[in-house]
């Protein structure tokens, strides 16, 4: 009965060590969340491949995990960018924008992430639409990857458009090329691909008269909104993946409320994918800024502690 008491007493000292013993029914490493690979993809963009066999087995395109890098950290949602069901790993790719993502970036290969829970959210609606355009901006490209792969598997002709501010910020180009039928790249400053925005590239495709029956767009909110405004007159079904502030990610707090088609939805349960043309973007923008002041404080504090 030695391995029965898997968890140390619940306290502020709950460290990762006790999680690493796992349960005998699930194998010793099932809940360990050990980081097997860490890579810097761009200046502030990091990839972690995490051992999480249960999550990997259950995960489908469009789902996310909630992660907490240490005892004092927030719970933050991160999209499952890849799930290797064979090896039991998931990959997350994140941009270091604030305290929690920066702290997550401090976890080294071989260490465990204390808390990883998922897969959460409703999987993306994948069917054979015919021709689809998939648009990814910035770190949103990481979230788009499994969706593109799943759409391709479902028999679609996938045109992928990737955008970044600068060549150095473009991630996953090779992987995306592999899973797409066509790949277009735009950079804001023209340092790579076509100079301009992803919206310009998408407009070109829509105007060319090609039979695009659906658009998937994931990226910073202003980009998704611009894509939504662009496709509306073309009446093309457009799916976006929303990223409001979340806490539990399981439908318990209601913090992730968004208005879609005039109805309140919980992003973590009903989404994160929604029909772009129905989203109340102004409301989402305001809600994302709800803790702007506190986020700034938290960063200052993190910087102080780092000193």
């Amino acid at each position: 009965m030695e391995d029965q008491k898997v968890f140390a007493p619940a306290s502020d000292n709950d460290g990762p060590e006790h999680l690493c013993r796992g349960s005998k029914l699930f194998g010793p490493d099932a809940l360990c969340n050990k980081v097997l690979r860490k890579e810097k993809l761009a200046e502030t963009v990091t990839l972690l491949e995490i051992q999480a066999p249960l999550i990997a087995a259950a995960s489908r395109a469009g789902q996310f995990v909630v992660v907490r890098p240490n005892e004092r950290a927030e719970r933050i949602p991160l999209t499952i960018s890849d799930a290797d069901k064979q090896n039991g790993t998931i990959t997350v790719i994140f941009q270091e924008v604030g305290r929690t993502t920066k702290e997550l970036g401090l976890i080294d290969e071989g260490d465990c992430v204390p808390d990883v829970a998922g897969p959460l959210g409703t999987p993306s609606e994948i069917e054979n639409f015919g021709t689809v355009a998939c648009v990814g901006g910035g770190v949103g490209i990481a979230f788009l990857r499994p969706i593109v792969a799943a759409l391709k598997d479902a028999g679609n002709n996938v045109i992928t458009i990737l955008g970044a501010r600068d060549k150095s910020l473009l991630i996953l180009e090779d992987e995306m090329r592999r899973v797409s039928d066509e790949l277009l790249i735009t950079t804001d400053n023209g340092s790579y691909g076509v100079k301009g925005f992803v919206t310009d590239a998408l407009r070109g495709i829509l105007d060319s008269g090609r039979p695009v029956s659906a658009v998937f767009a994931i990226g910073p909110m202003p980009m998704m909104r611009a894509i939504s405004d662009l496709t509306r007159p073309y009446k093309v079904k457009t799916i976006v993946s929303l990223d409001p502030i979340m806490i539990d990610g399981t439908g318990m707090c209601g913090g992730c409320r968004v208005t879609v088609g005039g109805v309140t939805r919980f992003t973590c349960v009903d989404g994160p994918d929604f029909d772009a043309h129905q989203v109340d973007w102004d409301e989402l923008k305001n809600r994302k800024l709800a803790y702007y002041e506190e986020e700034r404080l938290a960063m200052e504090r993190a910087a102080e502690v780092a000193k």
Binding site: F7, D115, P119
Partner: peptide, 26 residues
């Protein structure tokens, strides 16, 4: 007090695993 009561249940041999969402993880 809450931790104490949970520890008591654990001390009976109960294994408690966090971060597993039944219906999602398994």
């Amino acid at each position: 007090i809450l931790d104490r009561e949970i520890d008591y249940v654990r001390s009976l041999g109960v294994q408690a695993l966090n971060n597993v969402i039944i219906g999602k993880t398994i």
